[in-house]
Simulated scan of single mutants.
Amino acid sequence: QQSIGQGSGFVFKSKNGLLSDKTYIMTNNHVVEHAEKIRVKFKDGREFEAKVTGRDPLSDVAVIEIKTGKLPPLPLGDSSKIEVGEWVLAIGNPFGLSHTLTVGVVSAKGRTALGINDYEDFIQTDAAINPGNSGGPLVNLNGEAVGMNTAIFSRSGGYMGVGFAIPINLARNIAQQLIEHGEVTRGFLGIIIQPLTPELAKSFGLDQTRGILVSQVNEDSPAEKAGLKVGDVITSYQGKPVTDVGDFRNRVSLTPPGTEALLTINREGKQKTLTVTIGKLSKDKLAAAGPAQTAGELGLTVQTLTPQLAEQFDLKPGEGVVVTQVESGSIAALAGIRTGTVIIEVDRKPVKNAAEFKRIVKQSSADKNVLLLIRNGNAQSYVVLKW
């Protein structure tokens, strides 16, 4: 069954050619990704058939083009210079009400980990954004686009004062790659990172939470070749401080492959600088019985990795223990540990079997605090358990 959807967009670039003119329009990927036919309607009533120039589902940015020229592009501002409290205007097509303008302020910047896109760095605004606004510009008082309206937080499906826009600096970079290459090339380090919480910082003997923690280094990756190790704390990238996981991922992804980037890390209390050659992110990059031991304080039971289990979890026998049972409501369950989780280290010490795991946990019982390096699926992370 065919359906008709509506969204928003804005002209951001025109190209005059010898044989034909082109006008490029920026919008959201989710507005056009399933479209078989796209029609663009301007405020003066003119309509054009459009085709997709390129789409990037990971950032939710898309570019479409129409065969016409002499359409003035909307000036693009610098989203890095916007301030919280600054007035902004959202323009779009909410509920089919074309060219609607709403006013608000920048509520926050650098919103990440919202689960909306793979790569996030949202501007939050209280300007009214509703279904149909997606792809429209967020404009400052100088008439410059500083963002592209993308999503809302809502319990009702409508406006609740919390809207999100992709910063125009990020959207412009993605859109330019889509025009030039039809796809986006991203930088790649080959690590899994996590926030450095106060509990983790204390477990690593750090007196501050500045930086992010490396919980996994992939084999034969650019990070491994540069000497990065599990447990390193990244404090600076290309000379700029690192404070947030989402922001760091965005910065690495926007670094052209082949670039030699500088990483400042804290390793066991000592600062080091590493040079890493950024790789290219590809599309494919992310039961047997045994003696069991129970750690009552943690609320979990583990068993030694047999060769069969090791193969199942892509590990070597002797590289950790597998969780076979987690008590409901225990501190282990609350920390996200579940049946099938592999525990690789306890208090920075590799664990080879279930008996060794229980012995190390018992040694930590006096402090009622234990640091675990765990693996769920292909992702490793550190967790601190307190009881």
Rank of each mutant, 00 (worst) to 15 (best):
G290E: 14
V214E: 05
V370E: 11
L71K: 10
Q303F: 10
A175R: 12
G69I: 06
A127V: 05
G227Y: 14
D244F: 05
R338F: 01
T23Y: 05
L305D: 13
N169V: 02
A201I: 05
K109D: 04
G163I: 01
I174N: 02
R172F: 06
T102M: 08
A151C: 02
E311W: 00
A226G: 07
E345V: 00
E36R: 13
D118Y: 00
K229W: 11
K51Y: 13
S215H: 12
V162H: 01
F95I: 06
G187A: 07
R39D: 08
K362S: 14
E144R: 09
R186A: 07
E33G: 03
V31G: 05
D314T: 01
L19I: 14
M26A: 10
Q2C: 06
G239T: 13
A223E: 08
I66P: 04
D367P: 01
P131A: 04
L18R: 11
D314I: 00
L76W: 03
T197R: 10
E144V: 00
V351M: 09
A354V: 03
N93D: 08
L373E: 10
I278H: 09
E297S: 12
F188V: 05
I129Y: 03
N149K: 03
T102R: 01
T235N: 04
A366N: 08
Y159C: 05
K225T: 04
T294Q: 08
G377W: 00
Q124G: 01
L286S: 11
L19N: 13
A113N: 14
G110V: 01
V361Q: 01
E47L: 06
E183S: 13
Q293F: 07
S381Q: 14
P198V: 02
K270D: 00
L200W: 10
V276I: 15
E199S: 14
N93S: 09
G318P: 09
G161V: 04
T102A: 06
I337K: 10
G77F: 09
V52L: 09
T112F: 00
V61E: 05
P317V: 06
T275M: 09
K202N: 13
